[in-house]
Nucleic acid binder design. Structure first.
Lengths: 177, 177
DNA sequence: ACCTGAACACCGTTCAAGT
DNA sequence: ACCTGAACACCGTTCAAGT
């Protein structure tokens, strides 16, 4: 709060006229990051899968543009921008043929996937030093975690590719039969 | 730190002999929650899917037993217990026939799903008051978010069922063809 | 309607010192 | 090897007051 007031060139307590408390600021900041500037009323495309992938990649990218936003996720803030994104996602899936009975599960699954991926990616944005340290620690542990070591799980840094590929698998599972 | 020292009946600064700083305490606490007491060297079961589901449900349940632990997730802490769980998961998937080239993506996908679900579930542990407020706000917004409203996305509280069902879909997608 | 400074209760951590 | 209190720099927020 004090830092924020400084940045705005106002007194600290002036903030409290516009905002309830620190939590409130966080909620507003998180939702602000998630404003969606996608094609709003896109033509009735046949490619629902492509649309979903695009929406969710944008979701993740928006948050990674402000890595602090990932640390704000463990709160139940459902601002208007988050709700809009959920609504758009619901509508797309529904139009794609997902039954209403499966819709909630589908939405939450995709949400979980995106949130987990974003938090993980933001947390593992290692400096080179950290990376070197991780590498060393891993070598030392290769006999205890052989499978992880063999696949170089912790050294694989194609985050974007992994996100896209995993999302593809999830959509495979969710696709209406 | 001050609170923790009080609880332990020691001086505040005594903690700093055993621990570097507050972050260190958080890392240790998170990993402590994740100690795995599963069947360690289970018989070579044929049911790899059941094994994975069991492991991941236990992962989520362990964290939900201490809801504060979910808020510690946005950090890159890979303690020995987390690594053990990842190793066990890798081994199971590998034995199930997932190719090495797909293994990392599979692991991270499941990780993302579990982490997202846990954080979300912990954050939405609403009191009845909150729930009532959410309901009211939602009614008010039903014309702006019709699809969400229709499926009662925010009122559905079968979290455990949704977790299991969504995990099933993800595993469908990940299953080796 | 909007802003403010003083004050309060609370942090994590450094340091220099104890046993 | 292990513990300690005093002190520092920093928080978020209440309150009573200003314009």
């Amino acid at each position: 709060m004090r830092r924020l007031a400084d940045r705005l060139g106002s007194g600290v307590m002036s903030l409290y006229w516009h905002v309830d408390n620190k939590e409130d600021v966080f909620d507003l900041a998180l939702d602000a990051v998630l404003e969606y500037r996608g094609s709003p009323q896109t033509v009735q495309s046949q490619d629902w899968r492509g649309e979903v992938v695009h929406m969710l990649e944008d979701w993740r990218a928006s948050m990674l543009r402000h890595p602090w936003s990932a640390s704000l996720l463990p709160r139940r803030a459902l601002g208007p921008n988050i709700l809009s994104r959920l609504e758009l996602l619901s509508k797309t899936l529904s139009r794609a043929g997902v039954a209403d009975a499966d819709l909630n599960v589908a939405i939450w699954s995709l949400w979980n996937y995106v949130m987990g991926a974003t938090i993980t990616r933001a947390g593992f944005d290692l400096s080179d030093d950290d990376r070197a340290a991780a590498q060393k620690r891993l070598e030392h542990l290769s006999e205890r975690y052989p499978t992880i070591e063999r696949c170089r799980l912790l050294l694989d840094d194609d985050w974007d590719g992994a996100f896209r590929k995993g999302l593809g698998f999830l959509l495979d599972g969710l696709s209406p039969k």
